[in-house]
Amino acid sequence: MVDAELYHIIHGAKDGNQEAFAELVRRYKGHVYRYAVGMLNSRMDAEDVSQEAFVKAFYSLSGLDNEYAFSSWMMTIVSNLCKDRLKKRNKEQDFRDEPDECIADSSVSDPLAKLSVEESLARLSVDHREVILLHDVQGYQYEEIAKLLNVPIGTVKSRLFTARMSLRKELAKEDQE
């Protein structure tokens, strides 16, 4: 949901107001960064992609038809950039051969527990990772996810179920190890 204040900020940024855009970055940087971390399983890549996503957003904001759709529009940008980055990794054949750089967050008391969830998520397919992040981390509903990914609601429903079943399996493996 976009409140009136946020609507004005988005509108200002759309008109080229850099202050308003800075406020948008402040508000959305957490969402964008967490999504990128989940998709890429690398803090460094997530930082790069988040920065790139906001820069891209600044230059294409004038093309945003509806201010209320900013959040999902922003998520589409970061999602596409993450997928591009993953494709690039696959081409370089680094994705499976070498483990990604996972720098433990110093603010987290138990970095191993956190790492295992990210690692487990990274073992799922991109589509499965994506629906889990959009629903459980970003808080989108099925209908919104369907629009964002341009797939039927039924697909979102079945994809999320399969994704959770796979993640459950991966987390169980982690527990055994």
């Binding site: 970055v25 940087k29 971390v37 603010s107 987290v108 956190k114 959770r164 993640l167």
Partner: peptide
């Protein structure tokens, strides 16, 4: 399944974005 969901929410809720991200975007 509820436990998996809660684990994900909990783990990602603790991820902090880099403090200088906003400055880096504006600098870029």
């Amino acid at each position: 399944l509820l436990s998996v969901q809660s684990t994900v929410i909990h783990a990602f809720g603790r991820i902090q974005e880099p403090e200088d991200l906003e400055i880096r975007v504006l600098q870029a």
